[in-house]
């Protein structure tokens, strides 16, 4: 779908949060109104439009619960993606009042009575709130070869494992916590301009494998992967990726590390 059209719809429909809406008591159930950007590219003649649904808020209601209730009771055609509904699988990233985030762990009580939902921009739209992040992530992984390039292919599995410094293991896990939800790419200014930009997610993966002593690759190898404007030199340091990452990954710092290493490599 045309990203620009999509974005225009969001901008004009974005609603201010009514003052004091979130201060509602737990017991007084509000009526909430959820406006969804609808469009099914599979359906001939369909056009993007906003559609509003009203429902009564419940205790502990998340957008996962709300959207399922809408689909069950009001509109069986509404498309969205949830899997874990616990904030760990990255399926349900969408624009929530214009900001990329995980719908499953967003409590409606923390939002106003008027909520606007739209699919993540940038990714291929499947329909309504469902986008094809999986396809993009696979392509990114193939391009950046996001797997450990082991020093030797054959490992003797009967022997004691190789040692690793406990702090280093924790540092690698810190970067390995990425759930590939796509929020960083959806929020990225560079991705808007450069279709092939690897995104903060891609650069974070490079940072992760650079840290990992099990990976045989050197900076010269990584330079081949991200040493250009579709890689680390395309980043304009707008840092929206860092702001919206649901896992609070240190993306700004990691991109800076990778950039410095790639500049050094560029001079070699």
């Amino acid at each position: 779908m045309d990203t620009k059209t999509h974005q225009a719809v969001i901008d004009t429909s974005r609603l201010a949060r009514p003052a004091g809406a979130a201060a509602n008591g737990d017991n007084a159930h509000r009526r909430i109104r959820i406006s969804v950007l609808r469009f099914n590219p599979q359906k001939p003649g369909d056009v993007p439009r906003m559609q509003a649904y009203e429902l009564e808020e419940a205790d502990g209601m998340t957008l996962f619960i709300a959207l399922n209730e809408i689909r069950d009771k009001q509109d069986p055609s509404l498309q969205f993606d949830f899997v874990c509904r616990a904030g760990i699988c990255g399926s349900c990233a969408m624009l929530i009042d214009g900001r990329p985030g995980l719908a499953c762990r967003t409590l409606t009580k923390n939002l106003g009575a008027e909520i606007t939902l739209a699919p993540l921009p940038y990714f291929e739209l499947i329909g309504d709130l469902s986008v094809n992040t999986g396809k993009w992530m696979r392509a990114m992984s193939e391009r950046l070869q996001t797997w450990v390039h082991a020093k030797q292919r054959e490992i003797d599995l009967t022997r004691i494992e190789e040692r690793m410094d406990p702090d280093l293991a924790e540092k690698i896990y810190e970067l390995d916590r990425c759930i590939e939800c796509g929020c960083c790419v959806a929020a990225c200014g560079t991705a808007r301009m450069r279709e092939d930009f690897v995104g903060a997610i891609g650069l974070n993966k490079i940072a992760r494998f650079r840290l990992d002593p099990r990976d045989a690759r050197t900076d010269a190898d990584y330079y081949e992967l991200v040493g250009d404007d579709d890689g680390v030199f395309g980043c304009m340091s707008l840092l929206a990726c860092h702001d919206v990452c649901p896992k609070n990954l240190p993306l700004a710092t990691q991109i800076a590390f990778v950039r410095r290493a790639m500049v050094r490599q560029g001079f070699e």
Binding site: R163, E170, R214
Partner: peptide, 19 residues
């Protein structure tokens, strides 16, 4: 199981380590 966990260690799983 020990072979599996050690294979995964070689494949990059950042298992928590002993200090």
């Amino acid at each position: 199981a020990p072979k599996a966990v050690r294979e995964l260690a070689a494949w990059g799983v950042p298992w928590s380590r002993i200090r």
